[in-house]
Amino acid sequence: MNGKLSDRAGTAPALNQGEPKRTFLSTKKTDALWGAFFIAPQMVGLIVFSLIPLIMAFAISMMNWDGFGAKTFAGFDNFVSQFNDEDFRTAIVNTLYYTVLTVPTGIILAMLVAIGLNKVRGKIIYRLIYFMPTITMSVAVSVVFMWLFNADFGLINLYLKEWFGIQGPKWLTDTRIVMPSIALLSIWMGLGTNMVLFLAGLQGISSSYYEAAQIDGATRWQQMKNITIPLLSPTTFFVTIMSIIGSFQVFDQSFVMTSGGPAKASYTIVYHIYETAFVEFTFGKSTASAVILFIMILSVTLFQMKMSKRWVHYEDQ
C-alpha cells in the first residue's frame, strides 16, 4: 500500500507539467490589455468628439472664415474684436447676472427640498414629481412658459389679478423682469437634478452623528447647521460647479422665449455665439467667443477647486 501511495504521490506533480506558468508581469500585462479594451470606446469618443473639435476651435478662432470659402489667418484680431464688441460685453454681463440669479437660489432650494423629502412618507412619488421637469425638453418647457408669462392672457397674471388684485408685470417684454423670468424657469427645471444629488449626499451621512447630537440635546436646526450642511459640502461643491457651467451655457430659454430681447436684455454668451456664427456667418469671431467662454468656465472651475479646500469637509477627515 505504501508503494501505491508513493506512486500516486510521484505522479501527481506530472499533471501540472503541461500548464504554462503565469508570472506576475504576464498577469499585469493581461489586465492592462483588458483595461485598455474596455476604455477604448470612451477614449475614441473623447478624442473624436471632444479633443479634436477643441483643437480645431482654437485654430478657427485665429482665422477669418464664413463657413464656405477659404480661411485666412487673422491671429488674435478676432479676440480683440470680440472684447471691443458691445454686444459681446452685454452678453457677458447678462450671463453673469443670470448666474447670480440661478445658482445660489437653485442650490438652496434643492438642498431644502432634498432634506424635506429624505424621510417623508411617499417620498418616491414626491421625488418623481420634482424630477419630471428635468426629463422634459427645454424647448417644450420654454414654449409652455411663454404662454404662462404672457402679460395679456397668461395664467400667472390672470391669477395674480383675480386672487390678489395685482396687475402682473410684463414678464418677457420688460427689460428689468425678463432675465429674472428666465432664471425662474431655469431654477424650476434644474431643481430635480440637484435634489437627486443632494438626496444621494444625505444617504451617505451616517446616522450615528445625529444620534450623538440628539443625546447631547442638539435641536434640529443645530443638527442641520453642524452636521448636515458640513457633511453635504462635497455634494454642494459638485452641484455648484455643474450649476455654474450650466448657467454660463444658457441658450434654449433665451432663444425660444425672447430671441435675446427685449433690447438684448436676455442676450447671453451662447446666444451671441449662435448669432455671430449662423446669422452673420463670421465663424472666426464666433469661435473666438466660444474659446473665451471656455477659458471663463475653466478659470471659474479651477478657482472653485482651489477654494474648496477651505470649506469642503469629507466624512473620513
Rank of each mutant, 00 (worst) to 15 (best):
P180A: 10
G261D: 00
S50G: 01
L96F: 07
G165M: 07
S50H: 05
N64G: 06
F294K: 12
G122R: 10
P20Y: 15
V139A: 13
G106A: 06
P234K: 07
S206M: 11
Y126M: 13
S299F: 15
L155N: 04
W147F: 07
W221F: 09
Q214V: 00
I177R: 15
D252T: 04
Y271I: 01
V139C: 05
I205R: 13
Q223N: 05
G201N: 10
T102W: 09
G192S: 06
Q82P: 03
V270L: 05
N94C: 00
D316P: 00
I124A: 14
I156S: 02
Y209C: 03
I297T: 04
I52C: 02
F145N: 02
E19R: 15
K225Y: 10
D174M: 11
D252H: 02
K170V: 04
S186W: 12
L231G: 05
M195T: 06
I182V: 04
L101Y: 13
A57N: 08
M257P: 00
Q17P: 01
E275W: 13
T282H: 15
I108W: 08
S50Y: 13
P13G: 03
T99A: 07
P180W: 12
A12P: 03
M146S: 10
N194W: 09
P20H: 15
N226H: 13
M146C: 02
L128K: 15
P234N: 06
T173K: 07
F278E: 08
R310Y: 11
L15Q: 09
L191S: 08
D252A: 04
P41G: 02
Q203E: 15
Q214L: 10
V250W: 10
W147D: 09
I187R: 06
R121P: 01
N78M: 03
P53C: 01
F83C: 04
F303E: 06
R127K: 15
K170W: 15
A91V: 00
M137I: 03
A183R: 07
S186M: 06
Y159I: 03
W221P: 00
G217N: 04
